[in-house]
Amino acid sequence: MNFTFYGHSCFSVEIKGTKLLFDPFITPNELANKVVNADTVEADYILVSHGHADHTADLVSIAKRTGAKVVCNYEIYEWLGKQGVTNVHPMNTGGKWNFGDFAVKMVVAQHSSGLPDGSYGGNPVGFIVTSEAGNFYYSGDTALTLDMQLVPTWAELNFAVLPIGSNFTMDVEDAVRCAAMIKCQQIIGVHYDTFGYIKIDQAAAKKAFADTSCVLHLPKIGETVDMKNQKGFTR
């Protein structure tokens, strides 16, 4: 399972040749747009955790160009229809769907959600993605919540993608606590350093995870990491 980081909370995971793109925000991101061209990013599916612009800025353009199926909550599904995007699979919190090579369970995230035009974005969510190739959890933008204790009852995780920037989401300390709750040692950090509000000390963050026998991965923008080669990947 190859993980490719596109900056902020935008990333892709490849499962058996199928590319799952999450929260596309590249063009307005000054840290990313010098390295990644949103017009060349590939996707077979696009999973959207919530409607904020820093998670949806390139959603419509990439969805139309690639024809990727968008997986999102019902309110974003309705909004996408108004933008001319029709290949959309609506879900809601607690639901699960088998897409063939992988299945998605939509889970609770504690955050807010509004779409770029100011319309209601529905509830923010996270995703548990399971497949024969491996399982992972993307929490979306969220605070630490006790609901995270349920995640390992649904899937044995090979890795998890968690925000660590604080101010708008969990900080490093809470992400470490989340890792314990979800019983996952391989963590990929997102939602940090993009803006002044979410700057972190990367070395200190890695040490905080290492002190609990976890590994915090902070890939460079444009970098691909083969997660199957990481400790704890059992498949």
Rank of each mutant, 00 (worst) to 15 (best):
F3E: 06
F5A: 03
H8P: 01
C10Q: 03
S12I: 06
L21G: 01
P24G: 02
P24F: 08
F25H: 14
I26D: 06
N29M: 01
A32E: 10
A32Y: 08
V36H: 00
T40F: 12
V41W: 05
L47Y: 00
S49M: 15
D54A: 07
L59T: 13
I62S: 00
A63M: 08
K64N: 08
R65P: 00
A68L: 09
V70K: 05
V71Y: 03
C72P: 04
N73P: 01
N73D: 10
Y74Q: 12
I76K: 04
E78R: 07
L80V: 01
K82L: 15
H89Q: 10
N92W: 06
G95E: 15
N98Y: 13
N98R: 14
F99L: 13
G100V: 09
D101T: 09
V104N: 08
V107I: 15
V108Q: 14
G114Y: 08
D117G: 00
S119N: 02
Y120E: 07
G122I: 02
I128E: 13
A133Y: 09
G134Q: 14
S139W: 05
T142S: 13
M148I: 04
L150R: 10
P152Q: 12
T153V: 12
A155P: 05
N158P: 01
L162T: 14
L162S: 13
G165A: 08
G165L: 05
S166Q: 11
N167W: 10
F168V: 09
D171K: 06
V172P: 00
D174Y: 11
A179T: 02
K183F: 14
Q185L: 08
I187T: 03
G189V: 05
V190W: 04
V190A: 04
Y197E: 11
I198Y: 03
K206H: 05
K206S: 01
A210T: 06
C214Y: 06
H217W: 15
P219M: 14
D226L: 03
M227P: 03
N229V: 13
Q230Y: 02
G232V: 12
